[in-house]
Amino acid sequence: MWHLQRSTLVCILVGLLALFTHNPAEAGMFGWFKRIDVQVSPEIKGAITLHDKPQADMVIKRGTFFEDSWSWDSTRTDADGHFYFAEKTVKAREVLHERQVAVRLLALDYPTKGDEDLFFRLSSSHNLKSRSSDLLTDGMHCELSAEYTMSYLKSLEYPNMDWHGFQSKCRFLHADKVIVSQAELDAAELEETWRGIHSLLAYITQNASEMDTDDFIRFHVRSSAESGLAMLHKIRELETDIDKLNTLPNFEKKFQHYLNKLNKEDQR
């Protein structure tokens, strides 16, 4: 009797499942039941120094941000200043909106007793888990007296994705694999500066005819020409491609032409 009831129940459930999933709009609703591991902190192996001296027995606090709130745990450095945090994950439903996940590390009682010094912060959307962040925190040497600066993390899984910034006072064991080098940053900035030059010139030429009659246009043509000239100087410092360098005088001439024209009209 029970077997019959159970098989009937299974049939009904299977039928309902088929009915719901038949409609593509409904099919997704079963994602409600899907729970995945969201990494809120990778495994962290680090060392703390102050003026290059290892800091022993220092309390290191780790904050993880998930679902709109922070949770905290802590550890102490050993005699050599080393500290360790295990990977931390939470079970959660998969989401498609931007769900912020972040990890922070703070050194306690620095610079003075009772203070907290933030020396590392990494954030992402959806999940921190990636080959890049795992490698990043696999060996980090943090100097508390160093400046807290922005570096950029490459995505090893998706190399075409925008580099994502993180802040720290640390040097990283696998920096060569996962952190964007200064040369790569300079190349990206150079590319953006060239784009900027082209867009400024396009704006000026599009609007030059209204320069005499419209004060707003005059202001922005002047500003664009001045910015264009300044950016050409920057390109001269960074560009190594001879062919591109040879085009600079032509751009300079064009920006200067509009600037002279505006100056003459102003004098008049």
Binding site: N23, A25, G28, M29, G31, W32, E94, V95, L96, H97
Partner: peptide, 15 residues
Amino acid sequence: SVLDRAVRQAIQQVK
């Protein structure tokens, strides 16, 4: 109702 559900899923819940 069906549009509500699709939009909510996009923002909220489903792979």
